[in-house]
């Protein structure tokens, strides 16, 4: 018994050292392997592409990746798509762990200095509409009224022309890209999390709660809208694809795919495919986004709009 304990300690220590050594050897092996892979792609593109980030963009990228890999000329490229959120995507692409960082917001809004190296590829536009429970009796809200609701100045629907019913806010977490977009372009200001407000991460849950809770208000991407919730006009403008394209309806944002510097050939092939008409006119529209090419207005990272 007395001899065994030090023995165990020694074995443990030895193993720790061994494992540490293994670890470093592994990374060396990995990097040299990828180096050779980069060298011999003279004839045909091969390799792997890792796209990480926004869960809002994930379904589109996944669907495009499936189609991309099914093409004979790209069959040697492996595209992997992972979620994790816009923040994760931007961190990983800036740190070099991922080839593509998917994000709902401009990199400048999340990162500071690292965003300079990142190259933006806009693959779609996502628009959002304020939605309420069907019983509130309001079908139009001005920006001022929305701000009053989301800052807690107005707490009953009768103050904005609806029924006598308390307002229940269903928000996104303060770090979420969807919330940032809504605050920036619909409210024009940041809001704090009010007491009693509900925060949910996924659009599905927001829709479920808004449709079931009397007096609830939230916001959803256009692809989630149906007759279970009451879609509210924003300053009298209906949230439709046409109004977004023409610039009448302002609550929209780009979906970004960032690369660090100029992309590797296989990454570039995939991004080109994302921007091709095949994806833009079919999958993008099908999944509820708006193709960037059809937008009549442009917007930069500071929110300035140009025709």
């Amino acid at each position: 018994m007395k001899i065994k304990k030090p023995l165990l300690m020694i074995c443990t220590l030895a193993l720790v050292v061994m494992l540490a050594a293994c670890g470093s050897k592994d990374t060396q092996g990995g990097s040299s392997a990828s180096g050779t892979a980069n060298n011999d792609k003279s004839s045909e593109l091969s390799g792997s592409v890792l796209a990480v980030g926004s869960t809002a963009l994930q379904p589109l990228v996944e669907q495009a990746a499936q189609k991309f890999m099914a093409k004979p000329e790209y069959s040697k490229i492996q595209v992997q798509v992972q979620g994790g959120g816009s923040g994760t995507g931007l961190t990983q692409v800036a740190g070099g762990q991922a080839d593509i960082g998917n994000s709902d917001v401009f990199a400048e809004e999340k990162l500071k200095d690292e965003s300079k190296d990142l190259v933006d590829h806009q693959v779609g536009v996502i628009a959002m509409a304020p939605v309420t429970n069907k019983d509130v009796g309001v079908d139009n809200l001005t920006q001022k009224q929305l701000v009053d609701i989301f800052t807690g100045k107005v707490t009953n629907w009768k103050e904005v022309g609806g029924k006598d019913e308390p307002i229940v806010i269903v928000n996104r977490p303060s770090s979420s890209g969807t919330r940032k977009t809504f605050e920036k372009y619909a409210l024009g200001q940041k809001t704090e999390d009010l007491k009693g407000s509900i925060q949910e991460e996924s659009s599905g849950t927001v829709k479920k709660i808004v449709s079931e809770t009397p007096g609830a208000i939230g916001y959803l991407a256009l692809s989630y809208l149906d007759d279970k919730v009451n879609v509210v006009k924003y300053d009298g403008v209906e949230a439709t694809v046409e109004n977004v394209k023409s610039g009448k309806y302002p609550v929209w944002a780009y979906e970004h795919m960032y690369t660090k510097g100029e992309p590797k050939p296989e990454v570039k092939a995939f991004l080109d495919y994302m921007a091709s008409d095949e994806i833009q006119n079919n999958d993008v529209v099908e999944l509820g986004y708006i193709p960037v090419s059809q937008m009549e207005v442009k917007r930069d990272a500071d929110g300035n709009i140009t025709k």
Binding site: T88, T91, D193, L194, I198, Q199, E201
Partner: peptide
Amino acid sequence: NAPHIPRSLFESASTLTSVITLDMGNTVM
């Protein structure tokens, strides 16, 4: 998931774990 101490058992509140899962993916390392 409201970041406040609730006034009643039936008002929106948060736990340590719920905030971590809600925000971790959206923030930058």
